[in-house]
Amino acid sequence: MKDVKMVVTDMDGTLLNSHHEVSSKFFELFKDLKQQNIQFVAASGRPYYSIVEKLQPIKDDIIIVAENGGLVIKNEDLLLSNQLDPNRLLELYTLVTNIEGAYPIFCTQHRAFILRASDELVKTFSEYYSVYTIIDTFEEITDDIIKIALYHTTNSEKHIFPFVKHLKPELNVVVSGNHWVDISEAITNKGNALTFLQNQLNISASETMVFGDYNNDLEMLTCAKYSYAMKNAHPNVKTVANFETESNDNNGVELVLEQLITESRKH
């Protein structure tokens, strides 16, 4: 572990506990990471502004991979941006708005456009998409769309994924949580975003540590020698990761970071 120069972690189900909170312990450990010159990257399906809200105290010292790799931002500088092809948007809009029980959210860099959801659902969505506009028609979407997030109240893998999986491999379609399926450009995934950063910063896979819990983390887990699945992770993630740590509610990320900091200090 002494060679690790970059730590990358997913947010929901990984760094965040079940109440969507970052522990105070993590912020303490972050000071040690910074002291050891280890770059920290938050990589999430969440939008940029939502990740910033969660990591407000350290936002100027980290890199943020948002929208499953659709955006890479450091100190408000846009390093990478992958938008959905504007020529396909109407076709995609028509498809996703006709899936029974699916609630589409059209994600842009600065806000989300939420279609026809109840007040209760909007409240649920606002945990992830705190900056949003409610819309009734396609024409009301005014910005470049980076990702379409589809929400199902019980199980997205069963009730949404079968209706959109035919879009692969032309587009990236991934079950990103129990309730979520995300659609983005084919090149958009956390793994490609991480590879971009490794090249930019001249950091190898053997110098990278990654934590994840769901299928949208699979690609980035393959980019690191120190890849960790959370105890609460999807079975696919446990198959791909080289190691396993405790659950997100038992500070799984923090436990490994403590080991990393101990190792780094020895050298």
Rank of each mutant, 00 (worst) to 15 (best):
D217C: 06
F163L: 08
E21W: 06
H166I: 01
P104N: 10
D60W: 07
S23A: 06
T124S: 03
E120I: 01
E258Y: 07
Y151H: 15
I134N: 12
V174P: 01
E254F: 05
G212I: 01
K31M: 00
S227Y: 13
L194I: 01
F161S: 00
P57I: 00
S130T: 08
R265D: 05
L150T: 00
H110F: 06
L84T: 06
E207Q: 15
I62C: 01
T262Q: 11
H19S: 15
V8T: 03
T262M: 05
S118I: 02
Y128I: 04
K158T: 05
L92Y: 02
P57W: 04
S126Q: 13
Y48R: 10
L197K: 08
H159N: 02
A149G: 04
E53N: 15
E127V: 08
D3C: 07
K225Y: 14
F30N: 04
T142F: 05
T108S: 15
K34H: 11
K147V: 01
N17V: 01
I38L: 04
N192C: 07
A43W: 00
I135F: 13
F30E: 03
K59P: 03
K74C: 09
N250L: 09
N202G: 11
F40P: 02
D60K: 14
F243P: 05
K266G: 03
M230S: 03
W180C: 02
I187R: 13
N250G: 01
K34E: 04
P47Y: 06
L29M: 06
E76L: 04
I64N: 09
V181N: 00
Q36Y: 06
V164A: 04
T94S: 13
S184T: 09
V41D: 00
S81I: 01
F26C: 10
N17I: 03
I58Y: 00
E100I: 04
D136Q: 14
D10F: 03
N216E: 10
I135Y: 11
D85E: 10
K168Q: 14
H234R: 12
S18W: 10
P104I: 02
A102N: 12
F243V: 05
I146S: 12
I148K: 12
L55S: 13
